[in-house]
Simulated assay, not measured.
Amino acid sequence: MKTYLQRFLIFAAFTTTAIGCHAPSTTHQADFVIDLFPKKKEYHLGDTLVVKMLHPTFEGEIEKIDYQVHRNTLISVGDTVILASLPLGKQYLKVSVQMTNGKTYTAQKEFLLLAKEAPKLYHYQILNEYAHDPNAYTQGLEFVGDTLVESTGQYAESTIRKWNPFTGEVYKNVPLQPMYFGEGATVFGGKILQLTWREQVGFVYDAQLNLQKTFKYNKSKEGWGLCHNGNDKLYKSDGTEKIWLLHPETFAEIDSLQLCTNKSMYSYANELEFANGKIYANTFLKDGIMIINPENGAIEGVVDVRGLKEKVTKTEKVDVLNGIAYHPVRKTFFITGKNWDKIFEVVFTPANP
């Protein structure tokens, strides 16, 4: 019988494509191609590779060879490189050969890089239960003090609101126009940001939820979750294997992480929360929360939150788990779901301390 962690990861698995050699991108035509040894379908962080340059047609003597992955220069000894401190997923190894005569030849090869270790499994412990609006199709959730900023979805029903889970008081509730399906939200730089699902537009509000401006998506087709690291990095999920990094002023996608374990790539990261140096991501259609390394995309943990949905009042509207907010003073997480009438205050504990 598969463990919960195994079933969770199998469900969420993103099908990877076969690794192949791409046509070289060089300053001159047909200069060389790259081959990697040992030959494997995937490699893991920390692996050592031998990089062979095949069929070179260089003019002059080689002065220097550089190896890069995603703008990171690799540690190398001769033709041997170490895959250390790199983003995971489908990457390109770029080899640049500098000649004594000033010419430079380049080529690249795609490969799959996975995490070194398997994710750790966590359970949850309920500390408190609070009332939650059963008509709120929760898409985004984040604390500012004791106030929750919550984004809700569904066409003609989406809102952005501020309320207090300890008192139940709703400070403000702003409906979106009927053509917008609300998604993730976060509070960044004194502004409240809200995504939409397929409309490829985001909203920027002031602290009182007055709409200030909008922004367009740059590379992703959909908006799912949104969070930030408390400083200058914004993260956005779109339902694929990618977590996008957004420009802190224009909110355009400028880079991305790819979600990986030591076995495969994964998708369906939904609502996001940044806490304790990690990204916590509700997983669409699954009672699990991924704990993601924001530097390389490694899924370092999975929280098994099965059983929470069974504790809410059963109605036709009750949908999946979605909504996670960290309270930094209480050091607890608040978790709810779409059209749930409860929000749970919980802590996460390792399954095998």
Rank of each mutant, 00 (worst) to 15 (best):
Y171Q: 13
Y171N: 04
K172I: 13
N173Q: 12
V174Y: 06
V174G: 10
P175R: 11
L176I: 09
L176G: 04
L176N: 09
Q177Y: 07
P178M: 10
M179H: 05
M179S: 10
F181R: 02
G182P: 03
E183L: 08
G184F: 07
T186Q: 11
V187E: 06
F188C: 01
G189A: 03
G189T: 03
K191W: 03
K191D: 08
I192T: 12
I192L: 08
Q194M: 12
L195N: 02
L195T: 02
W197E: 09
W197N: 07
R198L: 13
R198W: 05
R198M: 14
E199Y: 12
E199C: 08
Q200A: 15
V201L: 14
G202A: 13
F203G: 10
V204L: 12
V204P: 07
D206I: 05
D206T: 09
A207P: 00
L211V: 13
L211N: 13
Q212P: 01
F215K: 00
F215Q: 01
K216I: 04
N218D: 11
N218K: 09
K219W: 00
K219G: 04
K219L: 12
S220A: 15
S220R: 05
K221F: 07
K221L: 15
G223V: 06
G223W: 07
W224M: 10
W224F: 13
G225F: 07
H228F: 02
N229Y: 13
D232I: 00
D232Y: 02
D232E: 11
D232R: 01
D232L: 01
Y235L: 05
K236C: 02
K236G: 00
K236W: 07
S237Q: 05
S237I: 06
D238G: 12
T240H: 08
T240S: 15
E241N: 13
E241G: 14
K242L: 11
I243E: 02
I243S: 02
W244Y: 10
W244M: 05
L245V: 01
L246Y: 00
L246W: 00
E253K: 10
I254Q: 09
I254F: 03
D255C: 08
Q258D: 06
Q258M: 14
L259M: 15
C260H: 11
T261S: 14
T261Q: 07
S264E: 06
M265D: 00
Y266L: 07
Y268R: 14
A269L: 13
A269Q: 06
A269P: 03
E271I: 11
L272C: 02
L272K: 00
L272Y: 05
L272R: 01
E273R: 03
E273M: 06
F274Y: 15
F274I: 00
N276Q: 14
G277Q: 03
K278V: 00
K278E: 03
K278R: 13
Y280F: 11
A281S: 12
F284K: 02
F284Q: 02
F284R: 02
F284W: 13
L285G: 00
N293W: 09
P294E: 08
E295T: 06
E295Y: 15
N296T: 08
N296K: 14
I299G: 15
I299S: 14
I299M: 15
E300F: 12
E300R: 06
G301H: 15
V302S: 05
V302N: 04
D304N: 15
V305S: 04
R306I: 04
R306F: 10
